[in-house]
Design a protein around this nucleic acid. Sequence first.
DNA 1: TTGCAGGGGTCAA
DNA 2: TTGACCCCTGCA
Length: 294
Amino acid sequence: MKIRGYEVIEKEDRILVKGVCDFDPVQIFECGQCFRWTKQKDGSYTGIVRGSLANVGFHDGILEICHANPMEFENLWFDYLDLGRDCGSIKKFLGKDPVMAEAIRFGSGMRILRQDFWEVLVSFILSSNNNVPRIKQIVESISRMYGAEGWVGEQQFFSFPEPWVLTAASAEELNLCRGGYRCRYISETAKRMNEICFDQERTASLTTAVARAEIMKFPGVGPKVADCVLLYSGMKQDVFPTDVWVKRVMETLYFKRSASMKEIQQFAKDRFGLLAGFAQQYLFYYARENSIGT
DNA sequence: TTGCAGGGGTCAA
DNA sequence: TTGACCCCTGCA
């Protein structure tokens, strides 16, 4: 059957999606944008998204999603995997820059997921002064402690808890997940989410600068985390999350000297414009995998 | 085995 | 602009 422009074939507990290009699970799930996907022995990835567990693999131009049906593809996976995105034209535009062209060749299967706003917000509050394995561990703990239990066959999993569930938890209680000082931010951010009845659509419709300022009102959210949240929840693509890694990479590849955050942000805005977020993603993966800027 | 620096930031002074 | 912050890891 045809769904959203893709040929989708249903087979038992899985679907095969034909005609997917620019898709590499390793590049997508290991570029630091998500924390609930785990690599399996066969190279596929298993993850939990909006209360569903699925396994995603890609071979010979066919995307395989296990534990999913065509309806879920239409209502969840198409958007989450951002399969409506024309990556070709993004690459064409960004590839005019020679440095970027090389990064794109290296990570040509990169995609930016459209993740749940609240989960991304909490995950990136946890990312400050932290590393990926530990962030994954804490997110998993929070899900086990407060999320809803689900089963796929013999496999148990836990969804990421809704804000109101965490509102009831004190920072001390939350700290059982070993998030340290960040647990206070999460507890307060959960309360704020409920108090202001956060409206994602409205925030996404604001200018990027205003939306960024709105997100930064959450405790524990500075400029870097705000940009990550805007980018990885699919709200804005013209942000350029600049952490120490990206800073070093930009200094090495473009500036050939040390540069301030402000300079880097302005440079990215001028050079990559509305596609700065994609540029950051290509650059980050390329630089990290090739140990550039270390 | 132990001690210490540092990690994909943020906040408060 | 600078130090503190929780906790984990790698390394000497």
